[in-house]
């Protein structure tokens, strides 16, 4: 299902932040999105939202004028829980040995995109993943192992089914507890669930009924308002994750 219409609908929920929504270009990441982003930047867009981009070659795009804000609206990492979740995962990281990132998707999903979305998520929560090795792949999913820049091993997996809704689950077990995050797809406002367990009990973070698309648009608005020193920073991080994704596909 194309998520771009959901992103366009989310724009209508921010009427004061974007009084002139025509200045915002929403790009479908499923097509030749680098060309579309390039056109938007050259035509003077006020801001650009790239919705769930597939892995693509866009090194030339990064050479363009960085004064325009571009935000990557990623399947999992755009969820509004990410800020609180990143704090929880980073606080537990020193005491955890291995991160698990498991994703449920519909059969027929594009695996390179699925892996890229996982890398973007792990980057947002903890640290960039600098290398990935695919351990097993079939028509029904894959298992891969990665290593973050902070030397934490990451188990990345995708299972394809229509039996349960698409979702990403991230878990970090520590010596005396855990941090667990369940993120539904960002097309509805169903909230993510962040639970931190420690010696004194378990705490669920307050739920946030906001779609990932709307959270991305708020981020775009903030970046536009700040007059970004580097409006392409999101794309630069995406590019690094695309390179890791492509490296993994070759192993």
């Amino acid at each position: 299902m194309n998520p771009t219409p959901h992103a366009r609908a989310a724009l209508a929920t921010l009427p004061l932040s974007f009084p002139d929504p025509t200045g915002v270009v929403i790009v479908d990441g499923g097509c030749d999105w680098p060309a579309e982003v390039t056109r938007a930047l050259r035509s003077g867009a006020a801001g650009v939202l790239v919705v769930q981009p597939k892995p693509a070659d866009f090194a030339e795009l990064l050479e363009l004028d960085p004064s325009t804000a571009v935000i990557v609206d990623s399947t999992w990492a755009s969820n509004p829980v990410i800020g609180a979740a990143a704090q929880a995962f980073q606080a537990a990281a020193a005491d955890g040995s291995r991160l698990e990132c498991r994703v449920i998707l519909a059969p027929g999903s594009d695996f390179p995109t699925a892996l890229l979305d996982q890398l973007i998520l792990v980057r947002a929560l903890l640290s960039p993943v600098s290398k990935v090795r695919v351990q097993y792949r079939s028509d029904h999913g894959f298992h891969a192992e990665g290593m973050t820049d902070t030397s934490m091993t990451v188990d990345l997996s995708v299972v394809c089914t229509t039996a349960v809704p698409a979702a990403a689950t991230v878990r970090l077990l520590t010596s005396d507890g855990s941090v667990e995050l369940l993120i539904p797809t960002g097309d509805t406002a169903e909230p993510a669930r962040l639970t931190t367990a420690g010696p004194d009990g378990a705490v669920q973070a307050p739920t946030q009924y906001e779609t990932g698309h709307r959270a991305s648009l708020r981020r775009l608005r903030e970046l536009m308002a700040s007059g970004p020193a580097d409006g392409l920073a999101d794309l630069r991080q995406l590019h690094a994750d695309v390179l890791v994704t492509r490296g993994a596909q070759r192993t």
Binding site: C160, T174, S175
Partner: peptide, 24 residues
């Protein structure tokens, strides 16, 4: 694919789950 994962730690919270997925 069969993934087996187990950790015994000082946590108070047990969690013992077996999952199996088909397409539907």
């Amino acid at each position: 694919s069969i993934e087996l994962h187990a950790v015994m730690s000082a946590t108070w919270q047990p969690n013992w789950v077996l999952e199996a997925y088909a397409n539907d």
